[in-house]
């Protein structure tokens, strides 16, 4: 997994395999970091604080709309 493991080799197999792995991990980490940071900013600016009991259904709409969620 890391170059200091003795079976490591600087060859195409390792470049492709671990390149793919780190690429994926970076994408997922950046995606989640973006979500959490934006959520902190949104919450601090008072978004989403007005919801009452009826808004559970509203939350469902979010999922239904996917990336078109309206807020």
């Amino acid at each position: 997994m890391f170059p200091f493991s003795f079976e490591w080799a600087w060859d195409a197999g390792h470049y492709l395999f671990f390149g793919g792995m780190w690429y994926t991990i970076i994408i997922l980490s950046l995606g989640m970091t973006f979500c959490v940071v934006k959520t902190i900013v949104d919450t601090a600016s008072g978004k989403g604080g007005h919801h009452g009991d009826d808004d559970a259904h509203h939350g469902t709409c979010c999922s239904n709309k996917g990336n078109n969620g309206h807020h």
Binding site: K47, C62, N67
Partner: peptide
Amino acid sequence: PFFHNLSHNMHS
């Protein structure tokens, strides 16, 4: 609010 926003942002 935090969770509501997080859910929304994750969808986005």
